[in-house]
């Protein structure tokens, strides 16, 4: 059984259908990339999974549990973290407070502290700036904070929405290295990206979304060599 299973998903904004009968699955331990142009519906799919949007039809199952109509905070408590588009860190709270909020669903203090140590080890810059207001961090640091905050809940799966958006090429490489590490440490990753080349370079499998429909799916290697993908998304 797949860890995350999406079947025949239809999502509407008013009368406009944003997602048309989308089905896909994510297996435990994988990095899955969902690529597509701006406005294809990538963020809509992520928001439907984490309950920020309610789909009109279809089912979303996480480890066998139906997520449709479950409130977001309950979905998060099941072991799913979602790093939203634009990072959405709490700018008026310190880096440390942001990380603590990431562990909101965790009851054990010792566990939270040991995860915090791990996060500080992966992101030494966050430790240096722990007392600083999150809004004063640079874009790259904010992305690190968003990732660290997601890790604080010790999730089994992380949904990431455009982690490379607005970052310098140097930071983009760093962020993708970190995603690989997170996955190696045992967390399943569902990655939404416009930067198709980068996403496919670290993913196991990928789906291509065009105007609300999945048009191509396959292993990341296959997609990197697919002529239509090359033309449309890799700029070759």
């Amino acid at each position: 059984m797949a860890m995350l299973e999406v079947r025949d998903l239809d999502v509407f904004y008013g009368v406009i259908q944003a997602i048309k009968s989308v089905s896909f699955e994510v297996n435990e331990g994988e990095i899955i990339a969902l690529i597509g142009a701006n406005g294809a519906g990538k963020t809509t799919i992520l928001q439907s999974i984490s309950g920020l949007l309610t789909p009109k039809k279809g089912s979303i199952k996480f480890e066998g549990r139906e997520l449709v109509k479950m409130p977001t905070h309950d979905i998060v408590a099941l072991g799913m973290a979602h790093i939203p588009e634009g990072r959405r860190i709490f700018a008026n709270q310190t880096v440390y407070e942001n990380l603590k909020l990431g562990a909101y669903t965790r009851k054990s203090k010792e566990e939270t502290n040991s995860i915090l140590e791990k996060v500080y080890k992966s992101f030494p810059r966050l430790k240096e700036r722990s007392k600083q207001l999150a809004g004063t961090l640079s874009g790259g640091e904010q992305q690190m904070l968003a990732m660290g905050r997601a890790l604080m809940s010790n999730p089994r799966i992380i949904l990431m929405d455009e982690p490379s958006m607005g970052l310098s090429p140097l930071f983009v490489n760093e962020i993708f290295d970190i995603i690989k590490e997170i996955n190696k440490a045992g967390t399943t990753v569902f990655l939404v990206e416009q930067n198709a080349k980068k996403a496919l370079s670290i993913a196991d499998r990928a789906y291509v979304l065009e105007t609300g429909k999945i048009v191509i799916e396959g292993s990341a290697k296959e997609l990197l060599n697919d002529d239509s993908v090359k033309k449309a998304y890799l700029g070759e």
Partner: peptide
């Protein structure tokens, strides 16, 4: 307190607070 921190988070950004597992 944890509840106070949740309150401040929800004041700042409700969807993001929900994504932390806070019942807004």
């Amino acid at each position: 307190t944890k509840a106070g921190s949740a309150m401040r988070a929800a004041s700042e950004d409700k969807p993001a607070a929900e994504l932390m597992g806070i019942n807004v």
